[in-house]
Design a protein around this nucleic acid. Structure first.
Lengths: 182, 182
DNA sequence: ACTGCCATGTAATTAGTTACATGATTAT
DNA sequence: ATAATCATGTAACTAATTACATGGCAGT
């Protein structure tokens, strides 16, 4: 997309996810934010602490978040949203999505390279993929039980939704695997 | 994953996809390979020509592919697999997948940030997402009709599969959207 | 003449990964 | 003691994106 002399910046996602994490629960440390990526968010975005810590510094510099240390605790650094950060999050959510994501599904790509329907590798690959999906599905169902157990808590609708979304995705993939096998 | 003094290289995907593209039809130019990413493969991996051309050079240097120019045509450069490239492709497909991909679904992430079920933005976001999904589904169904039209051609099973996979994915997402709306 | 596409390439930058690093605390 | 985890950070590198760049050829 070329727009005159303006350079179009690459689409950023990580800082907005961090804003979203802090919007759900203020006063979180870099480590707590990092750990969020191991749960439901990790189904849709991954980031290591080595990417998060510098990002937090940048966000402080840009006045999207502010740091706060607690007395008698020089180890942990807590972050919370600034009004500007809240505004940025709002603007980002409101902005329409213009294209669908790429799923980077290595399994599908590997299948793409198999030219003959009779190839014996297909069975093995499906079995392995099914095992991975089942394991993750079990994990997410446990999370659902643990976090919500039937009822959605006030102010957790978003969290509830993406957990449900992840579960639905896994289930549909398992259904599709069955159709391939026959 | 730390394994003694060995440095674990980052997981590469692009060169293997290029090998797969050349395995389906030998003698393709950089441009033809680039264009493949606009169709079915693009559902699962994207790459611009500015990434592909340098990658092709590297793959030639590594003896995974070889370049070939045709007489009276100094414009186009054709590539084909070397035995080593074929072996690399085979090895990659055989290697088990150890973890599920991250879908990088911005729509799901944005939903995550919406805390209340009554938020009026949800309706708009779903409508926009539905439009995107429907458009892409229509496109893929047309591709299916164009390329296969009921029967799978010999040697195109992989291509057929990932097209079917992409269609199934889109359909399941549309179904899920309905469940959110109510 | 101009627009758009074919075909290939490079430059500059940002995003993301792997590894290295330190010091404190908690469990066995 | 020592192993694991908490908590933060940096260094080095690879992958990927956006933009710049050139020359040819086809259509209007």
């Amino acid at each position: 997309m070329k727009v005159g002399i303006f350079i179009m910046p690459k689409k950023r996602t990580l800082p907005y996810i961090i804003l979203g994490i802090l919007a759900q629960k203020d006063e979180q440390t870099g480590r707590q934010i990092t750990l969020q990526f191991q749960n439901e968010i990790g189904e849709f975005w991954k980031a290591a602490h080595s990417q998060i810590y510098p990002e937090l510094k940048k966000m402080v510099a840009d006045d999207w978040i502010e740091k706060q240390t607690h007395a008698g605790n020089d180890k942990e650094i807590y972050y919370r949203l600034t009004p500007k950060g809240q505004a940025e999050l709002l603007a980002w959510i409101t902005q329409p999505i213009d294209e669908l994501p790429v799923s980077q599904d290595i399994f599908s790509l590997k299948l793409f390279f198999i030219q003959e329907a009779t190839d014996p590798r297909i069975k093995t690959m499906i079995a392995e993929e099914r095992a991975l999906l089942k394991k993750q599905l079990a994990h997410l169902k446990e999370r659902e039980h643990l976090l919500f157990d039937g009822h959605v808590n006030q102010g957790s609708y978003g969290h509830y939704l993406i957990l449900k979304r992840a579960i639905a995705r896994l289930k549909s993939q398992l259904v599709w695997l069955d159709t391939v096998e026959n």
